[in-house]
Amino acid sequence: MNQTKLFLTACVSVAMTAGSIATANAQDNITLRFADWMPESAFTTSYGAKAFMKKAEELSEGRISFQYFPAEQLGKGSEALTLLNSGVADVANVAPAYLSEHLPLSGVVELPGMVTDSCTAANKFYDLVQPGKALYEAEFKKKSVRPLFTANLGPYRILTNNQELSTPLDISGLKLRTAGGAMAMTANRLGANPIRMQGSDVLPSLSRGTLDGVFWGLISIEDWSLETALDQMIPNLSIGSFNVTYSISDRAWDKLSPENQEALVKAGQHANQNHCDYVNRAEKQAISDLEVKHGIVPLYLPEDELRGIREDLTQVHEDWAKPLEKRGLPANKVVREML
């Protein structure tokens, strides 16, 4: 082969190699559509979603980017699994309380007393939704999604409007918003009438008087402007919590390179810690702000009364687990691993 032919052959080889690298790099770059039902003003958006996206972009060196759709732009919280399975979204805020018919075991975080420290609860739940673990195998795997980030909104408390509370027994007969599932069972145990509704519907319902109060995390009251429609709270009784995940569809996950998969996993772990650290810092300040700035009067229960209520509410754990166990779901195991 003469020198000219050798040179041309080498050029072709280099060009083919360069083209193959360019194609690989192009395939490595991906934009993920992220559906979130929470508003941009929510602390979970700031300390969770935005922290997650920023870290994923950083760890992937720009290969991963996001189209972010907050505030129900792509759909409500109850539609999150449909958005993922249909391909409308690649990543979505999947809240088990809004999908209790699909993710009943994941409602364990809503049980009374289950969340006292946000990071402890978030880390335990995160472990349970990893491949091979109880919640992933029993629920998320069957829905063709995998959680990358998990968080709770801190301990939920009882808050009311235009009601005279001197004890939790005074909520008997009141219409209280819960997220459904286990939290509704807690309301029933306390004698209240649980009303399940999306977060965006709560303020108008309180203002119209169709709700008497809420089970809600104190640090997110202002995010939803609920401080204008509430006047009393019980800050030292934890009646459950609300849990969220940022989950990716298997369809989207399987298209990612191993490097991009690893970047998303690490970004989720970063956001887990970032979010729960904030929640743990914020609640004490929230109690003060709600009282001083907004006139929401705190009712602190004496320790002996608290102890009796907590003991009584452990019955909710058993009542919640029993029907799930009958369906062949490992509810008692999940409760034990979360406690």
Rank of each mutant, 00 (worst) to 15 (best):
I64Q: 08
V115I: 11
T150G: 11
P204R: 03
F242W: 02
A192G: 12
E291I: 01
A22G: 01
D127L: 12
S247Q: 06
L148N: 05
P131L: 05
I30D: 03
M183R: 10
G295N: 10
L339K: 15
E57T: 14
Q27N: 10
L226G: 06
N29S: 11
D312C: 02
V94S: 07
N93Q: 13
L329H: 02
R177A: 13
T314A: 03
T120M: 12
I30F: 04
Y126F: 11
A121Q: 12
F43Y: 11
G240E: 01
K5L: 14
N161M: 10
T210S: 12
A331C: 07
G132D: 04
K266N: 14
S220R: 04
D289Q: 15
K141M: 09
D223M: 04
A22R: 05
S257R: 04
G217A: 09
K141N: 05
D254T: 13
E101H: 15
C11T: 02
W37F: 14
P194I: 08
V316W: 01
C119I: 08
V109M: 12
F52R: 08
L169S: 14
L176T: 09
K175W: 09
D312F: 12
G154C: 06
A89S: 07
D231G: 06
A121F: 04
I219L: 11
I171H: 03
S257N: 03
N274L: 13
E291V: 01
F242I: 09
I248W: 11
Y246C: 03
D312R: 10
S166P: 01
A95L: 02
E303R: 13
Q269N: 14
A263R: 04
M53S: 13
T120S: 15
S86C: 05
T178S: 15
N236R: 10
E325W: 04
S288W: 11
K142W: 06
S207M: 07
L111I: 10
L206D: 02
R307D: 10
L59K: 12
E222S: 13
A35Y: 09
G132M: 05
R157L: 13
I239M: 03
D36N: 13
S220Y: 03
S288C: 02
Q232K: 15
N85D: 14
P39T: 02
A51H: 07
G113E: 05
F34E: 01
P330F: 00
P70A: 14
V109T: 12
E139P: 01
R196A: 10
I158F: 07
S86H: 05
T228A: 13
D90Q: 05
F140N: 04
I21N: 00
T186V: 08
T245P: 06
A187N: 04
A18R: 01
A71E: 15
F69Y: 15
M1N: 06
K5H: 11
L339E: 14
V297G: 05
K141L: 06
V91Y: 00
S20H: 00
K76Q: 08
E164I: 12
